[in-house]
Amino acid sequence: MSVREVYTSTASNPLGRPRGFWSALHLDPVLLILLTALIIGGLFVLYSGADRNFDVVKAQAIRFGIAFVVMLVFAQLDPSVFRRWAPWLYAAGLAGLVAVLLVGVGAKGAQRWLALPGLPRFQPSELMKLVVPMMAAWYLSRHFLPPRLPRIGMSLIVVLLPMALIAVQPDLGTALLVGMAGLFVVFFAGMSWRLISAFAVMISVAAPVLWFFGMRDYQKQRVLTLLDPQSDPLGAGWNIIQSKTAIGSGGFEGKGWLQGTQSHLEFLPESHTDFIVAVLAEEFGFIGMLVLLSIYLLIILRCLFIAVVAQDSFSRLIAGALTMTFFIYVFVNIGMVSGLLPVVGVPLPLISYGGTSTVTLMAAFGILMSVHTHRRMISA
């Protein structure tokens, strides 16, 4: 066998084994099994949360089918493709966010959607959950790591610009998710703890200014409601009070599937979207929540493993950032529903009813699988 043939063989199959089914599809079977278990379980909870409306479950299953196709397509692409296209996607995303402010479609007091002729209505901000960490990883991976202060400053501009455009829509929840996704890239690139402490102090000093000049009245009300839900039990505090009641009433084993009273008697608002975890806790109790959190933990650990074994800086940064963004989804939603965080409208990943966020998350997992299955052996 020639040197060229040996190199080609090891490049396409670094472990020297016959190419298997999962390798041919560029899918990670461990991650795929965990995601499938989460989605199937989520559909059962959704059926109860939607008050036994099978049409809602059917629509969500169709969305999951589309999301799986998107994940499969993203998994086929080499990470170098994402690196090469990152600046162009970032520019397109910024143009979309500006277009939303100028000609966007409004609903419920927010202007977040674009309706282009011949295309379904979509949110450019969802695209930025993937593009912002991709762009930050592209920029930082082109230079020596850990980055120096000027590089960190430029990276923060890359992150904060789309974050600000999303916040003025207004969509504070999505803006925070986009910002965290980008900041995780900067953190994983090797940002020193001294700088992290300095930024934390700056944020603390700027918090009063943000409260008086940067936050809208309904956003302030969410924070005040978090601190004292009983101040307005029939108004702003209703959601948190009913959610905590549902979670507490589930006990250790829960009331049983389809037996929850808070959701089926319509005490619990948004029971099939943002507050669906309260439905799960009421019907399956502590055991059900433990199973859910265990699956989430295994998914996060598997994704972190993929990030650790990635063989170039761009892949490590984007994989780590997307993994921690998924963690933030879980942490914020469960914290919000249990009354530990303000209500910001973040769905429970792959459980809550919704299409755009589901496709975005599965696209992120497609990128992670791409990073893991396109590794090459580094010769000595």
Rank of each mutant, 00 (worst) to 15 (best):
P208A: 06
I247K: 04
A198D: 09
V178D: 01
F82Y: 08
T10A: 02
P133S: 01
L31C: 00
T8P: 09
K129N: 07
A364T: 13
I295R: 03
E126D: 12
A321H: 06
V3R: 14
H264P: 09
I241E: 10
I306C: 11
L43A: 08
F54P: 00
P117A: 03
S249P: 11
I276E: 02
G106C: 05
L348R: 05
M336I: 01
A236H: 11
A206M: 14
L340R: 15
V6T: 10
M163R: 00
F54G: 04
P229S: 03
I276F: 05
L290M: 15
G345L: 01
M324F: 08
L304E: 03
G190K: 02
F122I: 02
F82W: 13
V100T: 08
A198Y: 11
R148Q: 08
G288P: 14
I295N: 02
G109D: 01
E126M: 00
M202G: 15
S370H: 14
H26S: 15
L234F: 15
V45A: 01
L149V: 13
A136F: 10
A198H: 04
L292A: 03
G20I: 09
L348Q: 05
P124W: 05
S352C: 01
L301A: 12
G179T: 01
L116D: 03
Q259M: 12
G190N: 14
L258A: 03
L46R: 02
G106W: 08
I351G: 06
S48R: 09
T225C: 11
L280K: 06
V291D: 06
D28P: 08
L340C: 10
A95I: 14
V57L: 04
A92G: 14
V279C: 05
A115I: 01
L160Q: 03
T373D: 05
Q60G: 12
R222W: 07
N239H: 15
A246N: 06
E282H: 14
I351Y: 09
M289R: 04
G235R: 12
L140H: 08
W211H: 15
D28F: 02
K244T: 14
P342L: 07
P117E: 08
P133N: 02
V205K: 05
L290V: 09
A137K: 05
L15A: 08
G41Y: 10
T373Y: 11
S80D: 11
A380W: 02
F68I: 07
A59R: 14
F286S: 08
K244I: 12
A59Y: 13
V359T: 11
V371A: 10
V337Y: 07
I40F: 09
G320Q: 11
V159N: 07
P18L: 05
A380V: 05
A236I: 06
G118K: 09
M134E: 02
A206H: 13
L15V: 03
F365W: 01
D217Y: 10
V57H: 00
P347F: 00
G256D: 05
R17A: 11
T323I: 01
G49Y: 04
V56A: 09
F327T: 15
S315L: 00
V359G: 00
H264V: 06
Y90C: 03
L94R: 12
Q230W: 15
R121G: 03
A207D: 03
L361N: 11
V337C: 04
Q169R: 08
S379V: 05
A92P: 11
R63F: 00
G173N: 09
P342F: 02
L268V: 04
L34P: 06
L292S: 06
S370F: 12
F144Q: 06
V57K: 02
A189Y: 01
